[in-house]
Amino acid sequence: MLTLIKGGQVYSPEYIGKKDILICGDKIERIDDLINIHTNSLSIKTINADDCLIFPGFIDSHVHIIGGGGEGGFKTRTPEIQLSNLTLSGITTVIGCLGTDSLSRNIKSLFAKSKALEEEGISSYMYTGSYKIPVVPLLNNIEEDIMLIDKIIGVGEVALSDHRSSQPSFKEFKNLVAQARIAGMLASKAGIVNIHIGDSKTGINYLQKLYEETDIPITQVIPTHVNRSKNLFKECIKYCKNGGYIDLTTSTTKKFLQEGEIKCSSGLKMALLNNVPIENISFSSDAQGSLPYFDDDGKFLGLKIGKCSSLYKEVRDAILYENINIEDAIKVITCNPAKHLKLNYKGFLNEGYDADIVMVNKKDLLIKNVIAKGKLMVKNYEALAKGLFED
């Protein structure tokens, strides 16, 4: 099957103008000003994209694909994510992780869900481990996991500066990062350690110490949830200026924002105004994590679930309300996570790359069509493909 996308304004993520895109199988075969195909022997699907901006497929680098939560008892465990939750949000590549609960959930279940999402039509990877150090691996150790299991690209989410963490020593943390790095080098993977940063006063102390006292590159770890407070975010801006990466979490609640959490779209603008390189910033949704919500008097009302739809919403808000140019805004969910995580052939619209494409209406920037691995998953705002057990 050949698919020809006609006349969209293409952001690769750099703007390259109005182009046609030819997809062959699951790859981008050609990008050109005008592509005409004259043959009766091939099946060709044509998509008119005159009214669209065309972006690379979005990468969500931190999702609880088998559910999260559970910190308020068994009934607070959140459900698994569904395929159409991801595709309707423009997400064509997802990285799964475990959080606090690695007892009733485990790395084998995470691996199975990652495989299932791949079978259903999107690209799926995962981290080994959870909040805890030492890590409970899929095989014998994290080196084997990263080197021998294709889907495992790093370790995470490891919790620091949080009462729910395993309270590791700096030596334990340092050794973990070193093991992940070496395994990544041997397997030609990122070997990234995804770090959950809590709201403890210790902040990113371990990350600073790792940078100052070891030879491990600062880019070997990615702290996430860095927009949970103004003080933490200020620390992380300084950290970025030394070359570090930061990841902002898009799922939030009104109550959290009232207590000082920074909205991702405004956080992105703050970082750029402080001369943080756009290449060092990414967004992730923390989807399927549990979020407490409250009334105006602060009374606990219940739990909501982190949404992957928040990922692009914050990028769209950055464009529409923070006046960040489109090229920079979409980098935080396309080429930046692709580079940070060494996801080859992802994050860009280039010939020979994976055919992961998002088309948004150029009037309101809402997601209209989504293609994952060459297959049309969302058409005219509706999911064409759903998971086996979706209604």
Results as ranks from 00 to 15, higher is better:
Ile218Trp: 00
Ile218Val: 10
Thr219Ser: 15
Gln220Ile: 13
Gln220Lys: 15
Gln220Cys: 14
Gln220Met: 15
Gln220Pro: 12
Val221Lys: 03
Val221Phe: 05
Val221Thr: 13
Ile222Ala: 02
Pro223Val: 00
Pro223Trp: 00
Pro223Lys: 04
Thr224Asn: 02
His225Gln: 06
His225Asp: 08
Asn227Glu: 05
Asn227Met: 06
Ser229His: 09
Ser229Asn: 11
Lys230Pro: 12
Lys230Val: 15
Leu232Val: 07
Leu232Ala: 06
Leu232Phe: 07
Leu232His: 07
Phe233Ala: 00
Phe233Gly: 03
Lys234Tyr: 12
Lys234Glu: 14
Glu235Cys: 05
Glu235Asn: 06
Ile237Ser: 03
Ile237Lys: 04
Ile237Leu: 06
Lys238Cys: 12
Tyr239Thr: 02
Cys240Val: 01
Cys240Phe: 04
Lys241Glu: 07
Lys241Asp: 02
Lys241Arg: 12
Lys241Gln: 13
Asn242Thr: 09
Asn242Arg: 11
Asn242Lys: 15
Asn242Gly: 02
Asn242Trp: 09
Asn242Cys: 14
Gly243Lys: 07
Gly243Leu: 06
Gly244Thr: 01
Gly244Glu: 00
Gly244Ala: 03
Gly244Trp: 01
Gly244Gln: 01
Gly244Phe: 03
Tyr245Ala: 03
Tyr245His: 14
Tyr245Gly: 05
Ile246Gly: 06
Asp247Ser: 08
Asp247Glu: 08
Leu248Pro: 08
Leu248Val: 10
Leu248Phe: 11
Thr249Asn: 10
Thr250Asn: 09
Ser251Val: 08
Thr252Gln: 03
Thr252Pro: 03
Thr253Leu: 07
Thr253Ala: 08
Thr253Asp: 09
Thr253Asn: 09
Thr253Val: 07
Lys254Leu: 15
Lys255Asp: 13
Lys255Leu: 13
Lys255Gln: 14
Phe256His: 13
Phe256Asn: 12
Leu257Thr: 11
Leu257Val: 14
Gln258Met: 14
Gln258Glu: 15
Glu259Asn: 15
Gly260Asp: 10
Glu261Asp: 10
Glu261Lys: 14
Ile262Ala: 05
Ile262Leu: 11
Lys263Trp: 10
Cys264Pro: 10
Cys264Asn: 09
Ser266Gly: 10
Ser266Trp: 09
Ser266Cys: 11
Ser266His: 11
Gly267Leu: 05
Gly267Asn: 05
Gly267Tyr: 00
Leu268Phe: 07
Lys269Asn: 11
Ala271Met: 08
Ala271Trp: 08
Leu272Asn: 08
Leu273Thr: 12
Leu273Ala: 13
Leu273Gln: 14
Asn274Arg: 10
Asn274His: 10
Asn275Glu: 13
Val276Trp: 01
Pro277Glu: 01
Pro277Val: 02
Pro277Gln: 02
Ile278Glu: 07
Ile278Asn: 09
Glu279Lys: 11
Glu279Trp: 03
Asn280Ser: 14
